[in-house]
Design a protein around this nucleic acid. Sequence first.
DNA 1: TATTGTTATACTCTATAACTATA
DNA 2: TATAGTTATAGAGTATAACAATA
Lengths: 152, 152
Amino acid sequence: MDAADDGGGIGILSPLIGYELRRALGAFLGDFTEEMKGTGMRQMLIGILAIVASQPGIRQGDVGRILGVKRANMVSLINELLAADLLHRAVDARDGRAFVLNLTKRGDAKLAECQIRILAHEARMLADFTEDEVTQLHNLLRRIPDRRPAAD
Amino acid sequence: MDAADDGGGIGILSPLIGYELRRALGAFLGDFTEEMKGTGMRQMLIGILAIVASQPGIRQGDVGRILGVKRANMVSLINELLAADLLHRAVDARDGRAFVLNLTKRGDAKLAECQIRILAHEARMLADFTEDEVTQLHNLLRRIPDRRPAAD
DNA sequence: TATTGTTATACTCTATAACTATA
DNA sequence: TATAGTTATAGAGTATAACAATA
């Protein structure tokens, strides 16, 4: 069955990459949420921790820019992570307006725990894919350009 | 650059299909929303129209099942489309509990108008892809299983 | 002036529970 | 009792505008 077929009675949606993206992300997100139960974490919070872990001392606004989250919406997310003692925040020594972020010990441990679960989740979702196919999918998705107005 | 590299300083997110799906859908959705300005339509409403067009007389609950929208959340969406005179609703002759849906003339025209815009949007997002690559991506995405609990 | 973070607010999508009417 | 649609409500993501502090 090729892309032009309508196996599920979805009409003009059938050939659309945008439709399949939405469906696939819905499927991923459902399984992801299930896997994360009990950790108190969700996709966005883990995303922030992962980026701070990869770039210690990164500024709050830059994290938002990478994730496509607007400044205004970063505030409560960061506050959540601070309240849970997963993140540490300090005024940037070179710019009194900005905050620099680092993981706490608990943040580091939490991220490690989440990573294990996420890998199990991804393996489950992609169980029917060969290693090559996963790489192919990853490389194709990466080439989709982000033409959003800089998220702010 | 292969899937294990971290070109953007995103750490453990780098190899994750789930992360790339989220990013790609965000990019698609931003461009889609821009393209649809002035039509008064959004992704979910168009999805409903497309399915009803493909399966005239389909029941409201079945549309929700296909799109992964819960019964409770279908109500206001259907009401919006009824109020805009894009959809027609009638009690199922064979089951007094259910509603069967059909497009109105205006709904048919609106869907056609949206389809033209959507195709322009998809072409723009996938401008750097060959035809084969688009088909590849589509087929890979289709194989991602939906393990959500039936959306209801 | 421009930028960083903040507050306030609103819209959309998603989720659950309880209700009704039909089957 | 089971199902279709509804109502009410809440959580999460996303969007804009206006503000204070700093550059």
